[in-house]
Design a protein around this nucleic acid. Structure first.
Lengths: 192, 192
DNA sequence: AATGACTGTCAGTACTTACTGACATTTAAA
DNA sequence: TTTAAATGTCAGTAAGTACTGACAGTCATT
């Protein structure tokens, strides 16, 4: 009666830890709770990871995500403002949602576990710098109004981050409709 | 040699509590720490508030802020898109920054202290609904393109929230320059 | 059948922390 | 000076929690 043979026992513990720490905080959850949520005894947790700290660090090492931001772009951008902003926005939400729990941990434990949130994001500067470069090139092509590329990139990413951070309670508005409408506004605002 | 006679001892404790809980979390800070930061003994803290929970609730009751969102508008809006968005954006950042620590507490303790974050914000729906109404009226006046007012309001507020949430580490970009540039983009994107 | 890798149980240790009681001390007003 | 209210000190309790050691059970492989 194995419950999920495709996933190792260590990973079960890691996933339970991420789940609980993301919602209750590192200090708000006990090793007993984590083990029980994963379907094991507390002893097994310590046999696998040695300490609660190690458990968190193992979770980070195994489920980090910072790198996957970069490559999706250079290949797929077609230098059409609306199409590219749509791609960027959709990619951003896809990555952020896939890693929502780890991001929540970073936000909550920023001051408790120094170095942790630095490694994981700072809301992906990569995204901002890539988008800044993109805007700069577009301006060179004459396809952008005379604006500050960095601030525009910062505004666009911040908007998407704000939506991501609140998306528990949107309800009436779907992410996709938001993306289409906001991209349209930015496109209209930035096209010469 | 009283250190700050303009503020009561209870309030000193409350402010120290807000300060520390905002950065280290409710479970991450001890009553000993809070009392020491306020310049008192731990005993005094318990004489004033009875329990750690009471301390947090007293802090909320005394330093809530939800209501001050509403009234600033109806008086000051002049039905010029750019000027009004500037006012709204500046007002938003002023209120949010003034209450930054309480907001941090709401974000961090959302799952630990149920009912707390509900009372305090959900990032001010008031702001969104006011802005939605504003856009609707502007559309009626023929001063807005044919867009969904609610989504536009949501986008604009989310963008400002995203900037607010990250503003620890902006560095090169000042809030004011961001406000001006982002308002200009929205104005251009939404003006017929 | 025997082995080895993994898990569970249980009792217990060491440390932290919210919270209390008794008593002394300060401070300001009467 | 007396009094009352607030604070400090100190010792201590009760509960929670990370973590350990000893021992036993399970199960697949040989």
């Amino acid at each position: 009666m194995s419950e999920d043979s495709s996933i190792s026992n260590s990973d079960k513990l890691l996933l339970a830890a991420i789940d609980l720490i993301a919602s209750k905080g590192y200090k708000g959850v006990t090793t007993q709770e984590i083990a029980a949520a994963a379907g094991f005894s507390e002893k097994t947790l310590f046999r696998h990871f040695g300490s609660k700290q190690n458990l968190l660090e193992a979770a980070f090492d195994r489920f980090h995500y910072a790198e996957e931001m970069t490559r999706l772009f250079d290949e797929k951008l077609i230098w059409d403002l609306q199409a590219d902003l749509l791609l960027i926005s959709r990619t951003y939400h896809e990555i952020m949602n896939r890693n929502r729990k780890m991001i929540m941990i970073s936000v909550k434990e920023a001051d408790n576990l120094p170095g942790f949130s630095e490694r994981t994001l700072k809301h992906p500067r990569q995204f901002i710098s890539i988008l800044t470069n993109y805007f700069t090139v577009m301006a060179g092509k004459g396809k952008l109004t005379d604006v500050n590329p960095e601030i525009q990139a910062y505004s666009f990413i911040s908007m998407n981050y704000g939506v991501f951070a609140n998306n528990l309670d949107i309800g009436t508005i779907s992410i996709e409709t938001f993306i289409k409408e906001s991209v349209q506004t930015f496109t209209r605002g930035l096209t010469p």
